[in-house]
Design a protein around this nucleic acid. Structure first.
Length: 664
DNA sequence: ATAGGGTTAG
């Protein structure tokens, strides 16, 4: 699956339709649900012996009593009673015990029950064997499950289905997919259950070839009208990136439910198609299906990728009105949404309100702080996380190292890199990239280079790219060229490094080399992604590209920028023309520079917002160096807080300086 | 006895 960009430009024509999507729509609120307390009382072996049942009576034939014993978690006690001859066991007792273990995910106890069963006179019972296979799969005991399967003298369709479902649920999609033809080969006819599981596996593998085959098979077997199969098909197609097929299946479904909607919504959210998600969120309710935790989670995630604060807040309010509890899974996406929409304060509020925080909650919070340039706070929160006893994972470290790099916290960075070993986390390439970045940003270019040479794993393009970026920052042409060559060997089609190299040459006044890089890009078909910026004003999105005159107020916007530009020039702004190299004639350089998309967006925002209010601009690629300087001046001259979200982070401009400390 | 949907990084 392709990685999603950090931010996606919206489609103003469609997004604006959904800017106020809910105010005039009837809403569907679900009744407030109180979750029934689950029975987690299947005790540990030690406490089982303690016998919550008191002294066992020797004449137990009372089935109600047995049922209660099993349900109250005295499973081993029951086995004990069987051993002592106090109970005459039957299939249903084993069955209940196995089911209980599966429900409570008790692998150890499950093994004990299994063992007991194998010595009983019912050991040949196919029904219970299937149940045990399922139990092992539910408890994650894959080896046990496989052994049970292999040793079964006869199997039925349920056996195979339980195997396939188990693989699919345990992230072993290849095995699930491979087992399906075997099952069919031995002559069993798959049913709804089998299809749902195989489709889940096909989706996880992002394998539309398998998915389509299974889809055809479903139709032949008349399973295509099943809700489970339908939802699984929607999920499979969207995971394969085939949105139209997914939508088609969804529309053809005779019976839908929340899961079907959620599958479709999640599909669009995964692709970063935020507008579609918002539309579906509304449509779902129009058709009287209530949103669930899954729906909210996907929708917040979509808002995060668009960075639409108003929308996100609205749906958050919707969730509260709907009486949904703030569980970690949803809370985590909320934290992420608020952070990515530019309101780190709200993200912190959500984080504080969570009553159970998992690694992801912490990671989302740390990431948010890091993206907002709060390097020290990221580190401080990381320490709190350790104190709280939450075990950091690879993502945690990536985020913390990244924060150190951007915050110029060299020593901390080194320390945390070492700390990874203590937590038994093997650094991946990404961690090395961040370390190179850390050293490079601190100006230790040679150290960064030797760090790469000493890496125990093969450096990839991103590692050399990090060095290249630092060379651009410190104008080291020789090392920069070397790094660029390594990047081009490993990944010749990324426009980013080409632009960086071009910038290095331009800063050195080597225009011939700039032209060579430009030719390289042209010949190699390497295209720079067109830059665009957008602002949310009065419930509408306004999008700009460089030299844009498509906006109805483009004349006014240009005049506004010219006015602002002369003001900031008075206080020291000098345009840096090395930032416009590509597709621009030299004499036009400064002129073009002045109409970069972020400058147009800023000018527009200045025109249309009240003095003193915060301006929030979003951009689909890195903010340009000259614009960064210009915006700093504007924040001072116009006395505005300006927040720009670009590909990697937020820039909080205030009184002439930026939270990124000019490192980005 | 067997089935479908959700989060964090770069």
């Amino acid at each position: 699956m392709k990685k999603l960009p950090f931010i996606n430009p919206p489609n103003p024509t469609t997004l604006n339709l959904y800017k106020r999507p809910f105010n005039h729509q009837p809403l569907c609120f679900r009744p407030i649900t109180t979750t029934t307390a689950e029975d987690h009382s299947f005790n540990d072996p030690e406490t089982w012996e303690a016998g919550e049942l008191g002294n066992p009576s020797p004449i137990i034939q009372d089935h109600d009593f047995l049922r209660k014993s099993i349900n109250s978690g005295s499973g081993l006690h029951v086995l004990d009673l069987i051993d002592r001859g106090s109970i005459e066991p039957d299939q249903s007792i084993y069955n209940k015990l196995v089911k209980k273990c599966a429900q409570l995910r008790r692998l150890k106890e499950g093994r004990i029950v299994h063992n007991h069963f194998r010595n009983s006179k019912f050991k040949a019972d196919l029904f219970i064997q299937n149940s045990i296979l399922n139990m092992y799969m539910k408890c994650g005991g894959l080896v046990d499950a496989r052994n049970v399967f292999d040793e079964m003298p006869q199997r039925d369709m349920v056996t195979w289905t339980a195997l396939i479902a188990g693989y699919a649920q345990n992230d072993m999609a290849e095995e699930a997919a491979a087992s399906f033809p075997k099952m069919v080969g031995v002559g069993f006819k798959p049913n709804h259950f089998t299809f749902s599981s195989v489709l889940k596996a096909a989706g996880a593998l992002s394998c539309d070839k398998l998915g389509r085959q299974v889809h055809g098979f479903c139709n032949k077997c008349g399973c295509d009208s099943d809700v489970y199969v339908g939802s699984a098909l929607v999920d499979m197609y969207t995971r394969c990136g085939l949105m139209r097929e997914g939508r088609f299946v969804f529309d053809m479904m005779v019976i839908k439910n929340e899961v079907s909607w959620n599958a479709l919504i999640a599909g669009h959210a995964r692709k970063g198609e935020g507008e579609s998600v918002l539309k579906l969120f509304r449509d779902m309710q129009r058709e009287a299906y209530g949103p669930t935790h899954f729906t909210y989670s996907s929708t917040f995630s979509a808002c995060a990728s668009m960075g639409t604060l108003e929308q996100g807040k609205w749906i958050h309010a919707h969730m509260i009105k709907n009486g949904e509890k703030l569980i970690a899974f949803v809370g985590n996406t909320l934290i992420d949404m608020y952070a990515k929409a530019g309101s780190i304060e709200d993200a912190k509020k959500v984080f504080d309100r969570l009553d159970k925080r998992d690694v992801v909650s912490w990671n989302s919070m740390l990431t948010g702080c890091a993206q907002h340039g709060l390097g020290k706070e990221t580190v401080a929160r990381f320490e709190l996380m350790l104190k709280d006893g939450i075990k950091p994972n690879a993502i945690t470290f990536l985020c913390v190292l990244n924060a150190c790099s951007h915050g110029g916290l060299l020593n901390e960075g080194h320390r945390y890199f070492e700390l990874m070993r203590k937590y038994m986390i093997e650094p991946e390439v990404e961690h090395y990239v961040t370390m190179v970045d850390l050293l490079g940003r601190a100006g230790l270019l040679e150290q960064a280079e030797s760090f790469i040479r000493d890496m125990p794993i093969e450096p990839n393009a991103a590692v050399w790219g990090a060095l290249l970026g630092s060379c651009r920052m410190y104008r080291n042409m020789e090392l920069g060229v070397f790094a660029a060559e390594r990047v081009f060997e490993l990944d010749p089609y990324d426009p980013g490094p080409h632009v960086l190299l071009g910038n290095i040459y331009a800063s050195a006044g080597r225009w011939k080399d700039v032209a060579i890089v430009r030719k390289m890009m042209r010949d190699g078909g390497v295209k720079k992604e067109p830059a665009c910026s957008w602002v949310d004003i009065e419930n509408a999105v306004h999008m700009f590209v460089a030299n844009d005159d498509a906006h109805p107020e483009s004349e006014e916007i240009r005049r506004m920028w010219e006015k602002v530009c002369s003001k900031i020039k008075e206080v020291g702004y000098v345009p840096d023309t090395s930032h416009v190299l590509f597709n621009v004639d030299e004499q036009e350089r400064e002129e073009k520079l002045q109409y970069h998309s972020e400058k147009l967006a800023l000018a527009f925002a200045l025109l249309r917002t009240t003095p003193g209010s915060t301006i929030r601009i979003k951009k689909n690629i890195r903010v340009c160096g000259d614009c960064h300087t210009a915006i700093k001046f504007v924040s001072k001259v116009m006395e505005r807080e300006i927040i720009v979200r670009d590909t990697n982070r937020f820039h909080h401009f205030n009184s002439g300086s930026c939270s990124c400390r000019d490192y980005w």
